[in-house]
Nucleic acid binder design. Structure first.
Lengths: 140, 140
DNA sequence: GCTTGACCTTGATCGCGCTCGAACTCTTAG
DNA sequence: CTAAGAGTTCGAGCGCGATCAAGGTCAAGC
């Protein structure tokens, strides 16, 4: 069912290892995020453990909002070897900065939301206790 | 240039007040997020201060990842008046929960990224000082 | 009256990130 | 030998959230 002339994970195994679908794994390769992976004599992909951790790293970047295009920039640098270490570092630092900004923005939104929920709850309990406070829901 | 038979903000004024483009404001109205707004005799939109704060609230939801579809659900409830207060509260609480999860996920990613940046920096300074530590960049 | 410019509606188009379908190949089991 | 099943490529299609284009209306200023 599966040729094992070369060791490594099949695309299906890689899929369950990473959580990306086989379709998406191939798409990432086409998109230049994953370097053309080793093939069996029958032209099937075989993923190495390094591929697994690279994909995991890609997913981390992706889940923090990095675009495919920027991830490709990073992947291209990586392809060029150790001379690009500094450039990659700067890229990561920039992304970290963006990520921190994103987080603090979300936290601010969360606080605002909590406040709104509070006033909702206040008005609701007023309703339920039929407290005669004459001002009620004027909510968003 | 602008008919003022009815007071309120024009779509352009609304745009600069909220940061959404006029296109997007009209799109949100079509999408059922903003109830059909009052019109001048010449059929132009006039936004009230309440509209401004409602849009601001929508933007908050949007920026925290709520989909247009779910925002419409919320807006529909709001249209139905005070009887839906409890339902809206539940919706907001659910979103708050999702938001908190999102934030803590991002924070975890940020920590992982910081760690990776650290090892990059360590390897870089090793390179620059040409410290004879034999292991170098094997980075993602 | 005519131009100008902001506004209107409808429907098309876009960018992104997948996601899927069709047609084909390869390997292994029966 | 054959059939199943997992893999391959290529290109099309989708869902979302806008974003834009075309063609029309309206009101104010010259």
């Amino acid at each position: 069912m599966v040729a094992d002339d070369e060791a490594g994970l099949t695309v299906a195994q890689m899929s369950s290892a990473t959580g990306l679908t086989a379709h998406t794994l191939r798409y990432y390769e086409r998109a230049g995020l994953i370097r053309p992976v080793t093939r069996t004599s029958g032209n099937q992909r075989r993923y190495s453990p390094e591929d697994v951790s690279w994909v995991a790293f890609l997913m981390r970047l992706r889940e923090t909002g990095m675009s495919i295009a920027q991830m490709r920039r990073y992947a291209d640098l990586r392809e060029q070897g150790a001379v690009t270490t500094e450039a990659r570092l700067r890229l990561l630092e920039a992304h970290q900065e963006a990520l921190r900004a994103q987080i603090s923005g979300l936290r601010a939104h969360e606080r605002a939301l909590a406040k709104k929920i509070d006033t909702y709850q206040r008005d609701l309990s007023a309703l339920h206790n039929d407290t005669p406070t004459e001002n009620g829901a004027d909510h968003d």
